[in-house]
């Protein structure tokens, strides 16, 4: 577990079976299925669900006065919104924010104490692989780690910009960092397309690195 490249997440342990082989025979010979720490799985689930609620209720709030164009700006279709109207969207948003932020905080403490942030997140060796590496499997693995590492500061930025807008008077120093209200709203909103894009890349890279077995290991 201490060596990231030898961990079950690594490409080295991906099943070597040929596609023609029947699945049942292969499972007996394949290396043990990748395992994820329970804490990581809980974080992943709570993060996924709370982000989905925050994104959809956030678009509902967005529609009350679009960041781009104000009242006459483009609105998101109701299919992507949650809450039905502004007050409902706000209720969902300010309930889900607790699950999202507390989950991230607890997970942050967890990876700090267990030093997982050193082993399971992108390091200089991943950057080196991306610059000079020739092994495509190792390169995919480095991309995977870099991408899921990069989303972490975006999630923190979503909380900081959200807090700055939710309580701009009490956290005036935080709001002040964003220069003006329009920039603050834009930064908070931009986290939505980034998270959507990330979800897509993260899913594809996870499949590339560890096939469905890896994805399954994070969800079950």
């Amino acid at each position: 577990m201490s060596n990231p490249t030898a961990s079950a997440q690594g490409p080295e342990k991906s099943p070597e079976k040929s596609p023609e082989q029947p699945a049942k025979k292969a499972t007996k010979k394949a290396p043990p299925a990748p395992q994820q720490a329970l804490f990581s799985k809980i974080f992943h689930w709570v993060n996924l669900i709370s982000l989905l609620l925050l994104l959809t209720s956030g678009l509902q709030i967005y529609n009350a006065n679009p960041v781009f164009g104000g009242r006459s700006g483009w609105h998101f279709p109701a299919l992507f919104t949650l809450g039905g109207w502004l007050a409902g969207g706000r209720h969902w948003h300010f309930a889900a924010m607790w699950f999202f932020s507390m989950n991230l905080l607890i997970y942050g403490i967890y990876i700090f104490i267990t030093r997982r942030w050193k082993r399971r997140y992108a390091s200089s060796s991943d950057i080196q692989v991306l610059q000079t590496g020739k092994n495509p499997k190792r390169r995919n693995y480095a991309w995977h780690r870099v991408v899921y590492t990069a989303i972490m500061p975006v999630l923190v930025l979503a909380i900081a910009s959200g807090l700055a807008m939710y309580k701009p008077a009490q956290f005036y120093w935080l709001s002040g960092l964003f220069i003006n209200w329009q920039i603050l709203r834009t930064v908070h909103f931009i986290t939505v397309p980034i998270v959507v894009l990330f979800t897509l890349m993260h899913s594809l890279l996870a499949l590339k690195v560890g096939q469905f077995r890896l994805v399954k290991s994070m969800f079950t």
């Binding site: 959809t56 919104t81 969207g89």
Partner: peptide, 11 residues
Amino acid sequence: LNACGAPLYSN
């Protein structure tokens, strides 16, 4: 996801 005008459980 499909709230479609109803304040889905928001109360």
